[in-house]
């Protein structure tokens, strides 16, 4: 105690105190926000919400019910957040064209402004996961850490090279090449369809950024060994050696044993 009181007047004391204060508040803030931030995004204007409401009533309410409270044919969207809307509408999964094992990716039905308005409307109903900030989807994280997280949490469904894989009864996990970082992030926080939710307590925003970095890096790298044959593993390699490899060799054997004219 004495030592501290003596150093209290040290010129650096004020700075140390300031740092400590910052650390404590920052830490508290971090603790408070580990579980999915339920902060309502304030970047939406009132007109966005109003326009979104109209779009929703016209295009979504048939299944999701008036006020997005859900119906027989579609779940309630109260509390799913802007991220869910941006993912489902932005990748064209919603509005769904037909019932199937799962909603599939198709060309987006709404433009960016409309998607934003819909997101604003749904986000206004109840707090939920927001659209990620640019800093966590910039692809500048640690690819190696992202790879480890990807293999543990994602590769079992999406394949180690993110080429996709089968689920039960006609459902499948899609390939991730060509999917934007924002949509990947949103899928992780909202858990669309049968995908589990990976909230911020499970994989931190930093970890999600690493995963996106890893995916973008392997996608832009391509395979060092040449064409990747779909990155599907031994099955496509086996097919290739039987069809192309043996095929070419048989062509050679026929030439070799034929008579020249």
């Amino acid at each position: 105690m004495k030592a501290i009181s003596q150093k209290r007047r040290h010129p650096l004391a004020a700075i140390a105190l300031l740092l400590m204060g910052l650390l404590v508040t920052g830490g508290l803030y971090a603790v408070a926000t580990t579980v999915n931030q339920a902060k309502a995004d304030t970047t939406y204007s009132a007109s966005d919400v109003a326009e979104g409401g109209k779009l929703f009533a016209a295009n979504c309410a048939t299944c999701h019910g008036v006020g997005a409270s859900g119906s027989q044919s579609g779940p309630s969207l109260v509390g799913v957040g802007a991220a869910a809307v941006d993912f489902q509408v932005g990748t064209g999964r919603m509005p769904m064209q037909m019932n199937g094992p799962q909603a599939e990716k198709k060309p987006a039905q709404f433009n960016e402004a409309q998607t934003k308005q819909l997101a604003a409307y749904v986000a206004s109903l109840a707090p939920g996961p927001a659209i990620p900030e640019a800093s966590v989807i910039d692809g500048k994280g640690d690819a190696a850490k992202g790879g480890e997280l990807f293999r543990t949490n994602c590769a079992m469904c999406h394949n180690a090279a993110a080429a996709g894989g089968a689920l039960t009864r006609g459902k499948f996990a899609p390939a991730l090449a060509g999917v934007s970082g924002q949509h990947i992030y949103e899928a992780m926080v909202t858990g669309p369809q049968n995908m589990p939710v990976f909230n911020d307590a499970n994989i931190s925003p930093e970890g999600k950024r690493d995963i996106i970095t890893y995916l973008k890096q392997i996608e832009s790298n391509g395979s060092p060994g040449g064409a990747d044959l779909g990155a599907l593993g031994p099955v496509s390699e086996g097919l290739f050696v039987w069809i192309a490899g043996l095929g070419v060799i048989i062509a050679f054997t026929i030439w070799l044993t034929s008579r020249t004219s």
């Binding site: 790879g147 480890e148 293999r151 543990t152 590769a155 079992m156 469904c157 999406h158 394949n159 180690a160 090279a161 080429a163 996709g164 894989g165 089968a166 996990a173 392997i218 395979s223 060092p224 060994g225 040449g226 064409a227 990747d228 044959l229 990155a231 599907l232 593993g233 031994p234 099955v235 390699e237 086996g238 097919l239 290739f240 050696v241 039987w242």
Partner: peptide
Amino acid sequence: AFFTINPIWNYGPYDPSPVSAGTQPDW
């Protein structure tokens, strides 16, 4: 020269916890 086979760098080191979709043996 032109076709990748067994891209071990995609699979990562062996660890008993992860697994990849499409885990198959050679043909």
